Simulated scan of single mutants.
Amino acid sequence: MNSQTGPRVLLGHGTENDFVVLPDPDGDVWPDSRLDAAMVRRLCDRRAGLGGDGVLRVVRSVHVPDAPEVLGETLDRCEWFMDHRNADGSHAEMCGNGIRLFLHVLVTEGLLDRSACEAGVLVGTRGGPRRVGATPDGAYWVDMGPTRPFGEGEARLSGRAFAGLAVSMGNPHLACLTEVDVDSLDLSAAPSFDAALFPEGVNVEVINVVEPGEHIRLRVFERGVGETRSCGTGACAAAYAGLVADGRTSGTVIVDVPGGRLSVRVDEGTTVLTGPAVIVSTGALCAEWLAG
């Protein structure tokens, strides 16, 4: 390896929700003092950096300062922690696409055996522990926890108001079903929303029903990022909203996002998201860029 080459880095995505992945098993390459908000923004910059919707640091939970607080009594059962940052440098609680990619990286890096993951392994996140596993056909599933509706709200975008269901998936969502073709909407600017209902911001989904209670399509504006090609927690919130609109609170929903297709199974006590995860490239950061 060139002596001027720095830390290893991977690029990957889940249904085109893409991430810069930083392998740091022992927590000594990317401590918080190095992986600050400015560094995250540089890494995610699509022109001057590597480009991504966020950063995933692959690290053991014992090396994450706030892991005991967010994981509680499950800390000892979560060897690995998905240290997830949004593209603007802020911490993110949970990402369904990201955690599938996270497990894929653990497998491809030789840190976990894929066959042993089929039953699922617990991974720590700032949204709490999540069980994630591999499927025999090469995809990955994640138990996203229960959907938690907490009211109704309204988002304004493209000069229109869209009523929606407020849903927590460990992070806040406003899932707006509409008959307006979602492809016709302008999501280049952040939608406005009720700050009293969402004091920490919100991910906004605009949703078309393809088949009631069975199949939806959506676009999403993620807080701290902008419009993304996919959002795993957003797919779960949207699937739940679609089921509620059909008079149900459980079922399996196909969710089409700009980046591909996901499957969401909503049960009384939990929500399971299934979809692909892909590593695009691996390499190392150059000293020249790190010094910039």
Rank of each mutant, 00 (worst) to 15 (best):
P7V: 05
F19L: 10
V20D: 05
L22A: 08
V29C: 13
W30H: 11
S33Y: 07
R34C: 05
M39C: 11
R41D: 08
R42N: 11
C44D: 10
R46L: 04
R47A: 10
D53G: 06
S61H: 06
P65G: 10
E73M: 09
T74N: 10
R77F: 05
F81C: 06
H84K: 06
H84V: 12
E93C: 08
G98Q: 02
I99D: 00
L103P: 02
V107E: 14
T108M: 10
E109H: 08
R114Q: 13
A116L: 13
A116V: 12
E118P: 04
A119H: 13
R131Y: 00
T135I: 02
Y140V: 00
W141M: 00
V142G: 06
G145Q: 03
T147N: 13
E152W: 13
E154I: 13
A155L: 09
A161Y: 09
L165P: 05
M169C: 11
G170L: 01
L174A: 09
L174F: 09
C176A: 10
E179L: 12
L187H: 09
S188Q: 14
A195C: 14
A195I: 14
P199R: 08
E200D: 15
N203D: 10
E205Y: 05
V206H: 06
R217M: 10
R219N: 10
G224P: 01
G224C: 08
V225Y: 02
G234L: 05
V253W: 00
D256M: 07
P258Q: 08
L262W: 00
V266R: 03
D267H: 07
G269A: 15
T274Y: 00
V280K: 02
S281L: 15
L285F: 08
